[in-house]
Nucleic acid binder design. Structure first.
Lengths: 316, 316
DNA sequence: TACTTTTGTGTAAGTACTTACATAATTTAG
DNA sequence: CTAAATTATGTAAGTACTTACACAAAAGTA
């Protein structure tokens, strides 16, 4: 009957829009039931002004995630409805501070009551009726933020077309990709730690400047893998931040990166390469073993809570 | 950071719209990557015409769930782009049969390839990244179809305000509510059976005409509970299709319905009331016991697979 | 100090749909 | 066999946002 459902995930966008439209339509009717001549789309803005009197448009934008144009339009309408007043800020004349009018305060109680009833219904719908919807949406948004759909498709395409994998050095502008790849697997298996954030947010400062290097695997114009060599001392480097995009796992990209890293370490004058890992990461441990790394007795203190395996490769 | 998330399920609509917009925007970029000057919104229509040459606009509408206006506009654009041709049907001159042009056929292969790549990515995103999203959406849509949000809120409000519960007889137009209430709990605990569908789809024919009756509990203008008496013979009735909306459970509405049903059975000249239930439904069994029903040894064959308890109330 | 850049806001136009209205061809009813 | 209802389609205008452009006030810079 419903073709979109049969078509599969491709039509997700269309489907979400339809659901959204349906919910908004219902919401309009519900406001009417409560005797409120109030539009659903006003709600977030009105609510924020009620909660934080004197808030500016820009602050609202930051909190609700719409564009400033949208907020500007909603504010204009609310002012015209006599529910909000706008006053130019004394210190900064660009800012307009918003407040509820007496009429706005009058609407507030019934709005609160209605919100509570709707909230209760939605709670039942979302938690009992369709468990996991909220978390699934959050997860999807997070995934898309980490790597946009377009980039994911590009990677999949390149993989399908058997595009060559190129290993190259980190360049300016690679930081977001480097970060995303690592955040992805770390959050999948463990939790991000302060030491991760330092290295991932400012790789130049924490990795390159001290004499280390970052290698990236590129396929079809997309960064699909990464690893880093951190300089420990003149003849010793640590291999870390090894990550490969799930879309291209199984194509020996990790091996290519690992080999390139060892080769680079040798070129940099290393006599040994050290690494930390976790027993959960069996694929990675297999790779390290293949590269010639040997297990060390757990001895050296690590800044990472997840490290429960330490390995070393002695270079001749 | 994201206020909508903190606000809770009330903002679900807005959130879905944002996600939808994001996905559509990404899709447009992906088409460009594949060298297609093709808009995402064309896809379902174009796809259907490719699959079913000679399809009419109306048939497309039925399959993709958009309005006819939307399909009409998309078709117009596709014709203007030279991807589709429209021909008036010979038998029925209102119908316009659609087909791909040679240019349309030329686009098809790269579109298919692209669709497959996108599909693979979405599969990973939706199944691994945000498990349950698809089912959760389906469940939510199903719930909303069964009872619209507005009606749910009305029930919750009436319950909060302590609105009186009125038990009354089935009237014309009550069938959808009667059906929805029962489908809801049956699908929650068991599976719908053919015998259910007969009684729920045509209650007049299968319940009222043979001499039975249907009682509904109404609160705040919404039907929140139901039960039926089916005539077995001159002095024997079966109590069935007892259902109370989850939003108002715990307010003794089941008890009100049960008492009313027993009273009605007495008025109809019954000497006994019989019922079938299931051991899983402890709340219902408790209610039946309270009403004076006694367990029978499982003996009578039932048209319902879920029936594993049989009870009887002897009226004096 | 004058300049460029950034920030806060507003407006116009676009988007992917919708609802509302219109019209012709066909089917149904009396 | 004609009138009324239904069906298939088209178009205009609305919706809840968006992007793109504009501009003044403030902040940073030479």
């Amino acid at each position: 009957m419903d073709f979109l459902q049969q078509l599969g995930p491709v039509a997700l966008g269309s489907r979400l829009r339809r659901l959204s439209e349906h919910l908004t339509g219902e919401a309009a009717g519900i406001y009417a039931d409560y005797g409120l001549s109030f539009q659903p789309r006003w709600y977030p803005v009105f609510y924020l002004v009620a909660q934080q009197p004197g808030i500016t448009s820009q602050e609202i934008v930051e909190q609700i995630g719409h564009t400033h144009a949208s907020v500007s339009q909603i504010v204009k309408e609310l002012v015209r409805q006599g529910l909000l007043v706008m006053a130019v800020d004394a210190q900064d004349q660009r800012r307009r501070r918003l407040q509820l009018t007496p009429a706005g305060h009058e609407v507030l109680p019934s709005l609160r009551v209605q919100t509570e009833d709707v909230g209760r219904v939605m709670q039942v719908l979302v938690s009992e009726g369709s468990p996991g919807l909220w978390q699934a949406l959050t997860a999807l948004e997070e995934q898309l933020r980490r790597q946009p759909l377009r980039a994911r498709v590009a990677v999949t395409r390149a993989a399908r077309e058997g595009a060559p994998v190129v290993v190259r050095d980190f360049r300016a502008g690679d930081q977001p990709a480097f970060r995303a790849l690592n955040v992805d697997w770390i959050e999948r298996h463990f939790a991000l730690e302060p030491a991760d954030l330092k290295a991932l947010d400012q790789p130049e400062h924490y990795i390159l400047t001290p004499g280390g290097c970052i290698l990236l695997a590129e396929m079809g114009g997309q960064v699909v893998g990464a690893c880093a060599l951190l300089k420990q001392d003149e003849h010793s480097y640590e291999l870390a931040k090894m990550a490969v995009s799930p879309a291209v796992q199984g194509r020996r990209i990790g091996q290519r990166l690992g080999e390139a890293a060892v080769q680079r370490a040798r070129a940099l004058g290393a006599r040994r390469v050290y690494l930390e890992s976790n027993t959960k990461l069996t694929a990675a441990l297999g790779l390290y073993h293949k590269l010639g790394f040997q297990h060390l007795p757990q001895a050296i203190p690590s800044p990472y809570a997840r490290a429960n395996v330490q390995m070393e490769l002695v270079l001749h």
